[in-house]
Design a protein around this nucleic acid. Structure first.
Lengths: 336, 336
DNA sequence: TCACGTATTGATAGCGCTGTCATCGTATTC
DNA sequence: GAATACGATGACAGCGCTATCAATACGTGA
């Protein structure tokens, strides 16, 4: 193990005191150019890198940004994570993440784990924190961004979109295309899923085409296989169903395959609309309509908001609505 | 911000010295039961939680396990990550990860970032580290596990499987099923991809069915759309191709959709085999043959190996081969 | 009985860095 | 030219914890 180089050694080499080296590194403008040059040279020669733990102890603040998401395998969250990471990779901040498994208790616990590090910032998915989690966040004493959706009463900042409105738009699209007996497929009804259902329901009711019996859901996590099962079950009960709004793209893909197996033509006998617009939707046959959500950007924006705050730059609005766009494709071209 | 409770306060409350509290927390067996009980009570009453930065500074060792993977969105890595996280969530260790973007330079840089925290352990994807990275790892002075594949000359520990052999097995399966003019589809030829290709090639050559011209690859990251394009290109050049071994499941799915568009029947006119066996493969129509890799377990095993070492337990073998299994499904049932 | 091990607890001194003053020299003002 | 402000640097202490060694009490064997 190569021995650690300390600030003091750099200082000795540069012929200044340790504190001056510290300053030269953190606020270069407060140190004379000439001195700074000597210090920079010493840093380079010795290969000095600061010890994050010592810095955290001395400042009472870790250069860590905590990210709390429900799942590390769901593409929706990994895209966001990727955006966050992208924005932070070149900064002095490290990303640390926690997986809540969609459980409030786990979320609270992880929040505690993060907070005792006194993180520089916190990004948390969703807007449905428990009272206890809310209290922890209020006292976090660092920038906090809630992501994935928008809603009233942000803890601090927010970037997302309205799942209700996005689902309503998708539903309107189905109705516009002439589908009159739409159904709904959903897995694991987390809060966002529920709000999408509410949007579907509101829009369908507004057009007099909502039938509560054409709703097929399950508690298991969503999957392609699950989408197939849900469609099969729905069509068994309601063969008149002429379109399905699927709560996400996995379900939609499964529904497509199941329709193929059952000899149901898409979009003629059945329209299929997904949610999230993963890459595969465009490539499917027929290409699948979906709702594009700007996940990567959601991540970069959230991270950028935190950085701006921490670096004392102008932060822009505290609530960013990234919207969602219905991507119309062949799978919802209208009934025969 | 609720004020931080320190060790000293707990000690005062329990009527002992700070160092005894420290011991009671870290090595309970070295403190008398009665004393320990008083300390535990004080900890609970005050809601004390240790400061990780202070601990790291004092011990010269952070309770952090660093994970280096090429991509945060590729399902293959997120599954592994998930396994790692699962094993570590209940431990005293935090996970911190870095994304190399398949770039050696980034890998080296991130390795440096991790090492200066003096992590408790390191998990790194792949076995193709540069000389410089190798040196850093050799000096890391902590358990290191290379994951995703197995190979000679491990830095320390290893858990994975042979991509060459797995691909060869899949190829053999295609040949066993009667396909005689197999092609290969590949995107972004990273080292594992290359070794899979080598396995395909070796096996096909051994059976006299390899044609270097029936290989279609691209540098872009793999995607469903990309799979479609690759198949289209391959069939345009070599319409006689009767099966494709796809380097991963996204490509396989794209190939399936493209075959549908082109009116090529699967498996009659074209057999399709993927790699990784993502959940969707089973649910497709026809269900797609793939090679099951034990990604989640790879993560848990790697994390467990590190924990065992750190906690002084028996570690088992330093090289674990998890193998890979061809999952035969309808898409490779054989030519007409 | 006495030297000596063992179990338990404590005192001391940092880990590497930064916050908070203090210090010093130079520029500015009238 | 004296008073003042300011820019640049340094001394000192301490962040919260733990490594190391010392101290104490108690039992053990010859």
């Amino acid at each position: 193990m190569s021995k650690r180089v300390t600030l003091a050694e750099v200082a000795a080499r540069a012929g200044v005191s340790p504190i001056t080296v510290s300053r030269a590194l953190r606020r270069p403008d407060t140190v004379q150019a000439e001195t700074r040059a000597r210090i920079d040279a010493a840093v380079a020669e010795l290969g000095y890198v600061p010890d994050p733990a010592a810095r955290a102890l001395a400042t009472g603040r870790a250069d860590v940004i905590g990210v709390l998401i429900p799942s590390a395998t769901n593409a929706v969250f990994t895209d966001v994570l990727s955006g966050i990471y992208d924005c932070l990779a070149e900064s002095r901040f490290d990303v640390q993440y926690g997986i809540t498994r969609y459980e409030s208790a786990t979320e609270e616990k992880l929040l505690g784990v993060f907070l005792r590090q006194r993180p520089a910032g916190l990004i948390i998915a969703g807007i449905d924190q428990t009272e206890a989690a809310r209290r922890l966040l209020d006292r976090a004493n660092c920038p906090v961004v809630q992501i994935m959706e928008t809603g009233p009463d942000p803890v601090d900042m927010m970037v997302g979109f309205s799942h209700h409105d996005a689902a309503a738009a998708a539903t309107r699209h189905l109705i516009d295309r002439g589908y009159r007996r739409p159904g709904f497929l959903g897995a694991r009804m987390d809060p966002r899923t529920r709000r999408r259902f509410a949007g579907f329901r509101a829009e369908a009711e507004a057009h007099g085409v909502f039938d509560p019996d054409r709703v097929e859901t399950t508690d298991t996590p969503s999957s392609v296989g699950g989408g197939a099962e849900l469609l099969r079950a729905l069509l068994a009960r309601h063969p008149e169903t002429d379109a399905v709004f699927c709560n996400n793209d996995d379900l939609a893909l499964g529904a497509l395959f199941e329709a193929m197996r059952m000899g149901v033509s898409v979009p003629g006998q059945l329209g299929i609309c997904g949610f999230n617009d993963l890459e595969m939707m465009r490539a499917a046959e027929p290409p699948l309509t979906s709702v594009r959500t700007n996940r990567f950007e959601m991540g970069t924006r959230a991270a950028e908001m935190i950085r701006a705050r921490l670096e004392g730059r102008a932060t822009g609005p505290a609530l960013v609505d990234l919207g969602a766009q219905v991507q119309e494709r062949r799978s919802t071209q209208g009934p025969d």
